[in-house]
Design a protein around this nucleic acid. Structure first.
Lengths: 124, 124
DNA sequence: TTGTATGCAAAGCGTTTGCAGTGAT
DNA sequence: ATCACTGCAAACGCTTTGCATACAA
Protein backbone atom coordinates (compact mmCIF):
# COMPACT_ATOMS: atom_id res chain seq x y z
CA UNK A 1 0.00 0.00 0.00
CA UNK A 2 2.81 2.40 -0.86
CA UNK A 3 1.62 3.65 -4.22
CA UNK A 4 -1.78 5.05 -5.10
CA UNK A 5 -3.40 3.40 -8.10
CA UNK A 6 -6.61 4.01 -9.99
CA UNK A 7 -7.67 0.49 -8.96
CA UNK A 8 -7.51 1.32 -5.27
CA UNK A 9 -9.19 4.67 -5.87
CA UNK A 10 -12.03 2.89 -7.67
CA UNK A 11 -12.40 0.39 -4.84
CA UNK A 12 -12.51 3.03 -2.12
CA UNK A 13 -14.84 5.13 -4.20
CA UNK A 14 -17.23 2.19 -4.68
CA UNK A 15 -17.27 1.50 -0.94
CA UNK A 16 -18.01 5.13 -0.18
CA UNK A 17 -20.61 5.49 -2.90
CA UNK A 18 -22.72 2.47 -1.95
CA UNK A 19 -22.09 3.08 1.77
CA UNK A 20 -23.09 -0.36 3.00
CA UNK A 21 -21.33 -3.69 3.59
CA UNK A 22 -20.43 -5.05 0.14
CA UNK A 23 -19.57 -8.51 -1.13
CA UNK A 24 -16.32 -8.81 -3.12
CA UNK A 25 -18.43 -9.43 -6.23
CA UNK A 26 -20.57 -6.34 -5.62
CA UNK A 27 -17.43 -4.34 -5.10
CA UNK A 28 -15.96 -5.71 -8.32
CA UNK A 29 -19.14 -4.90 -10.26
CA UNK A 30 -19.18 -1.30 -9.03
CA UNK A 31 -15.44 -0.59 -9.34
CA UNK A 32 -15.39 -2.30 -12.71
CA UNK A 33 -17.37 0.64 -14.09
CA UNK A 34 -14.35 2.91 -13.80
CA UNK A 35 -11.60 0.29 -14.22
CA UNK A 36 -12.77 -2.22 -16.86
CA UNK A 37 -9.98 -4.76 -16.43
CA UNK A 38 -10.07 -4.77 -12.64
CA UNK A 39 -9.60 -8.28 -11.26
CA UNK A 40 -11.01 -9.94 -8.17
CA UNK A 41 -7.45 -10.60 -6.96
CA UNK A 42 -6.84 -6.86 -6.89
CA UNK A 43 -10.07 -6.34 -4.97
CA UNK A 44 -8.89 -8.79 -2.34
CA UNK A 45 -5.34 -7.44 -2.17
CA UNK A 46 -6.52 -3.86 -1.73
CA UNK A 47 -9.27 -4.75 0.73
CA UNK A 48 -6.64 -6.52 2.82
CA UNK A 49 -4.43 -3.46 2.82
CA UNK A 50 -7.30 -1.11 3.52
CA UNK A 51 -8.33 -3.25 6.48
CA UNK A 52 -4.76 -3.15 7.81
CA UNK A 53 -4.84 0.62 7.47
CA UNK A 54 -8.12 0.76 9.37
CA UNK A 55 -9.90 2.25 6.37
CA UNK A 56 -12.18 -0.74 5.84
CA UNK A 57 -14.00 -3.07 8.23
CA UNK A 58 -15.13 -6.67 7.76
CA UNK A 59 -18.77 -7.53 8.39
CA UNK A 60 -19.28 -11.24 8.88
CA UNK A 61 -22.62 -12.98 9.30
CA UNK A 62 -23.20 -16.71 9.85
CA UNK A 63 -23.62 -18.56 6.58
CA UNK A 64 -22.84 -15.48 4.50
CA UNK A 65 -19.58 -14.57 2.81
CA UNK A 66 -17.77 -11.65 4.40
CA UNK A 67 -18.76 -8.13 3.40
CA UNK A 68 -16.62 -5.00 3.53
CA UNK A 69 -17.48 -1.43 4.34
CA UNK A 70 -15.66 1.87 4.82
CA UNK A 71 -14.64 2.29 8.45
CA UNK A 72 -16.89 4.81 10.13
CA UNK A 73 -16.86 5.85 13.75
CA UNK A 74 -17.52 2.92 16.11
CA UNK A 75 -20.92 1.44 15.29
CA UNK A 76 -22.84 -1.82 15.19
CA UNK A 77 -25.10 -3.78 12.85
CA UNK A 78 -28.70 -4.79 12.57
CA UNK A 79 -29.61 -7.86 10.55
CA UNK A 80 -33.25 -8.25 9.48
CA UNK A 81 -34.35 -11.84 9.99
CA UNK A 82 -36.84 -11.56 7.14
CA UNK A 83 -35.14 -9.74 4.29
CA UNK A 84 -31.53 -10.37 5.40
CA UNK A 85 -30.61 -6.74 4.85
CA UNK A 86 -27.84 -5.32 7.03
CA UNK A 87 -28.15 -1.82 8.50
CA UNK A 88 -25.65 0.27 10.44
CA UNK A 89 -26.57 1.13 14.02
CA UNK A 90 -24.93 4.28 15.34
CA UNK A 91 -25.86 3.78 18.97
CA UNK A 92 -23.62 1.87 21.41
CA UNK A 93 -24.18 0.73 25.00
CA UNK A 94 -20.65 1.97 25.81
CA UNK A 95 -18.34 0.28 28.28
CA UNK A 96 -18.91 -3.47 28.47
CA UNK A 97 -15.99 -4.29 30.76
CA UNK A 98 -18.44 -5.35 33.45
CA UNK A 99 -19.17 -8.42 31.31
CA UNK A 100 -15.55 -9.59 31.37
CA UNK A 101 -14.44 -12.51 33.56
CA UNK A 102 -11.52 -11.81 35.91
CA UNK A 103 -8.12 -11.76 34.22
CA UNK A 104 -9.45 -11.02 30.75
CA UNK A 105 -8.52 -7.77 29.03
CA UNK A 106 -11.17 -5.97 26.97
CA UNK A 107 -9.96 -4.17 23.84
CA UNK A 108 -13.04 -3.84 21.66
CA UNK A 109 -16.53 -5.17 21.08
CA UNK A 110 -18.98 -5.80 18.32
CA UNK A 111 -22.75 -6.06 18.55
CA UNK A 112 -25.14 -7.56 16.03
CA UNK A 113 -28.82 -6.91 16.58
CA UNK A 114 -31.38 -9.23 15.02
CA UNK A 115 -35.02 -8.49 14.34
CA UNK A 116 -37.33 -6.98 11.77
CA UNK A 117 -36.68 -3.87 9.76
CA UNK A 118 -39.61 -1.39 9.49
CA UNK A 119 -40.82 -2.83 6.17
CA UNK A 120 -40.79 -6.43 7.43
CA UNK A 121 -42.19 -5.48 10.85
CA UNK A 122 -45.29 -4.00 9.22
CA UNK A 123 -45.74 -7.03 6.99
CA UNK A 124 -45.73 -9.40 9.99
CA UNK B 1 -31.26 -36.96 10.93
CA UNK B 2 -33.71 -39.81 11.28
CA UNK B 3 -31.42 -42.48 12.65
CA UNK B 4 -29.12 -42.25 15.62
CA UNK B 5 -25.57 -43.27 14.87
CA UNK B 6 -22.43 -43.60 16.94
CA UNK B 7 -20.90 -40.89 14.74
CA UNK B 8 -23.51 -38.33 15.71
CA UNK B 9 -23.33 -39.40 19.34
CA UNK B 10 -19.55 -38.87 19.27
CA UNK B 11 -19.97 -35.44 17.69
CA UNK B 12 -22.56 -34.27 20.22
CA UNK B 13 -20.51 -35.73 23.01
CA UNK B 14 -17.37 -33.90 21.86
CA UNK B 15 -19.26 -30.60 21.69
CA UNK B 16 -20.62 -31.09 25.20
CA UNK B 17 -17.31 -32.26 26.64
CA UNK B 18 -15.16 -29.37 25.39
CA UNK B 19 -18.03 -26.91 25.94
CA UNK B 20 -16.66 -24.14 23.74
CA UNK B 21 -16.97 -23.14 20.08
CA UNK B 22 -15.05 -25.77 18.09
CA UNK B 23 -13.57 -25.78 14.64
CA UNK B 24 -14.58 -28.72 12.40
CA UNK B 25 -11.02 -30.01 12.75
CA UNK B 26 -11.08 -29.78 16.55
CA UNK B 27 -14.40 -31.56 16.52
CA UNK B 28 -12.99 -34.25 14.27
CA UNK B 29 -9.95 -34.71 16.49
CA UNK B 30 -12.06 -35.13 19.62
CA UNK B 31 -14.79 -37.32 18.11
CA UNK B 32 -12.16 -39.37 16.33
CA UNK B 33 -11.12 -40.75 19.72
CA UNK B 34 -14.32 -42.76 19.96
CA UNK B 35 -14.98 -43.30 16.25
CA UNK B 36 -11.60 -43.89 14.56
CA UNK B 37 -12.79 -43.78 10.95
CA UNK B 38 -14.96 -40.70 11.36
CA UNK B 39 -14.71 -38.42 8.35
CA UNK B 40 -14.89 -34.64 8.06
CA UNK B 41 -17.81 -35.01 5.65
CA UNK B 42 -19.79 -36.71 8.40
CA UNK B 43 -18.89 -33.91 10.82
CA UNK B 44 -20.28 -31.36 8.39
CA UNK B 45 -23.39 -33.37 7.56
CA UNK B 46 -24.27 -33.89 11.21
CA UNK B 47 -23.45 -30.34 12.26
CA UNK B 48 -25.81 -29.13 9.56
CA UNK B 49 -28.59 -31.32 10.89
CA UNK B 50 -27.91 -30.40 14.50
CA UNK B 51 -28.07 -26.71 13.60
CA UNK B 52 -31.40 -27.25 11.88
CA UNK B 53 -32.63 -28.99 15.03
CA UNK B 54 -31.49 -26.05 17.17
CA UNK B 55 -29.07 -28.28 19.08
CA UNK B 56 -25.97 -26.53 17.79
CA UNK B 57 -25.16 -22.86 17.13
CA UNK B 58 -22.69 -21.34 14.65
CA UNK B 59 -20.11 -18.91 15.96
CA UNK B 60 -18.66 -16.83 13.15
CA UNK B 61 -15.79 -14.38 13.54
CA UNK B 62 -14.20 -12.18 10.87
CA UNK B 63 -11.29 -13.91 9.18
CA UNK B 64 -11.85 -17.15 11.05
CA UNK B 65 -13.57 -20.31 9.89
CA UNK B 66 -16.92 -20.94 11.55
CA UNK B 67 -16.98 -22.68 14.90
CA UNK B 68 -19.80 -24.76 16.38
CA UNK B 69 -21.07 -25.16 19.92
CA UNK B 70 -23.93 -26.82 21.76
CA UNK B 71 -26.85 -24.43 22.09
CA UNK B 72 -26.90 -23.06 25.62
CA UNK B 73 -28.92 -20.35 27.33
CA UNK B 74 -28.36 -16.86 25.90
CA UNK B 75 -24.69 -15.90 26.13
CA UNK B 76 -21.91 -14.10 24.28
CA UNK B 77 -18.33 -14.64 23.12
CA UNK B 78 -14.84 -13.42 23.83
CA UNK B 79 -12.16 -13.72 21.18
CA UNK B 80 -8.51 -13.47 22.24
CA UNK B 81 -6.62 -11.33 19.76
CA UNK B 82 -3.39 -13.21 20.49
CA UNK B 83 -4.20 -16.90 20.65
CA UNK B 84 -7.48 -16.73 18.71
CA UNK B 85 -9.29 -18.92 21.22
CA UNK B 86 -12.96 -18.28 21.76
CA UNK B 87 -14.52 -18.30 25.24
CA UNK B 88 -18.16 -18.18 26.30
CA UNK B 89 -19.25 -15.12 28.27
CA UNK B 90 -22.28 -15.72 30.48
CA UNK B 91 -22.88 -12.07 31.33
CA UNK B 92 -25.16 -9.91 29.21
CA UNK B 93 -25.92 -6.20 29.28
CA UNK B 94 -29.62 -7.05 28.98
CA UNK B 95 -32.12 -4.99 27.04
CA UNK B 96 -30.52 -3.23 24.07
CA UNK B 97 -33.75 -1.90 22.58
CA UNK B 98 -32.59 1.62 23.34
CA UNK B 99 -30.05 1.17 20.51
CA UNK B 100 -32.74 0.49 17.92
CA UNK B 101 -33.80 3.13 15.41
CA UNK B 102 -37.54 3.91 15.27
CA UNK B 103 -39.64 1.32 13.47
CA UNK B 104 -37.15 -1.51 13.92
CA UNK B 105 -38.14 -4.56 15.96
CA UNK B 106 -35.51 -6.15 18.21
CA UNK B 107 -35.67 -9.93 18.51
CA UNK B 108 -32.20 -10.93 19.63
CA UNK B 109 -28.63 -9.76 19.85
CA UNK B 110 -25.13 -11.09 19.76
CA UNK B 111 -22.04 -9.56 21.34
CA UNK B 112 -18.44 -10.40 20.57
CA UNK B 113 -15.81 -9.06 22.94
CA UNK B 114 -12.22 -8.75 21.76
CA UNK B 115 -9.10 -8.59 23.88
CA UNK B 116 -6.56 -10.75 25.65
CA UNK B 117 -7.26 -13.91 27.57
CA UNK B 118 -5.51 -14.25 30.99
CA UNK B 119 -2.59 -16.25 29.56
CA UNK B 120 -1.94 -13.79 26.73
CA UNK B 121 -2.54 -10.74 28.94
CA UNK B 122 0.26 -11.84 31.25
CA UNK B 123 2.61 -12.56 28.36
CA UNK B 124 2.14 -9.03 26.97
C1' DT C 1 -35.07 -55.94 3.98
C1' DT C 2 -35.17 -51.03 3.35
C1' DG C 3 -33.17 -46.85 2.69
C1' DT C 4 -30.66 -43.46 5.72
C1' DA C 5 -26.00 -42.39 7.17
C1' DT C 6 -21.18 -43.10 6.30
C1' DG C 7 -16.35 -42.97 4.15
C1' DC C 8 -13.80 -41.74 0.48
C1' DA C 9 -12.59 -38.99 -3.24
C1' DA C 10 -13.80 -35.55 -6.41
C1' DA C 11 -16.00 -31.25 -7.09
C1' DG C 12 -17.32 -26.41 -5.60
C1' DC C 13 -16.36 -21.85 -4.07
C1' DG C 14 -14.35 -18.04 -2.10
C1' DT C 15 -9.74 -16.40 -1.31
C1' DT C 16 -4.71 -16.33 -1.91
C1' DT C 17 -0.45 -16.63 -4.42
C1' DG C 18 3.27 -17.09 -8.27
C1' DC C 19 4.80 -14.85 -12.05
C1' DA C 20 5.59 -11.87 -15.86
C1' DG C 21 4.27 -7.46 -17.30
C1' DT C 22 2.63 -2.55 -16.09
C1' DG C 23 2.96 1.81 -14.26
C1' DA C 24 3.68 5.14 -10.08
C1' DT C 25 7.50 7.49 -8.17
C1' DA D 1 15.11 3.00 -13.77
C1' DT D 2 13.01 0.90 -9.74
C1' DC D 3 10.15 -2.06 -7.72
C1' DA D 4 5.22 -2.02 -5.94
C1' DC D 5 0.92 -3.13 -8.09
C1' DT D 6 -1.81 -5.52 -11.48
C1' DG D 7 -4.02 -9.32 -14.29
C1' DC D 8 -4.22 -13.92 -15.11
C1' DA D 9 -4.33 -18.50 -13.87
C1' DA D 10 -3.02 -21.92 -10.78
C1' DA D 11 -3.09 -23.18 -6.05
C1' DC D 12 -5.36 -23.37 -1.49
C1' DG D 13 -8.40 -24.41 2.34
C1' DC D 14 -12.91 -25.13 3.83
C1' DT D 15 -17.30 -27.19 2.66
C1' DT D 16 -20.35 -29.93 -0.17
C1' DT D 17 -21.55 -33.74 -3.10
C1' DG D 18 -21.62 -38.36 -5.85
C1' DC D 19 -21.42 -42.94 -5.20
C1' DA D 20 -20.90 -47.54 -3.35
C1' DT D 21 -21.06 -49.64 1.16
C1' DA D 22 -22.45 -50.16 6.01
C1' DC D 23 -25.79 -50.38 9.36
C1' DA D 24 -30.11 -48.63 12.10
C1' DA D 25 -34.81 -49.73 12.04
Amino acid sequence: MERSTKQRAAIESALKKLARPLLPQELLAEAHKSVPNLSLATIYRNIKGLIADGVVDVVCLPGETDRYEIHRHHHHHFHCSSCEQVTDIDACPGDLSKLMPKGYLLEDHEITLYGKCPACAVRA
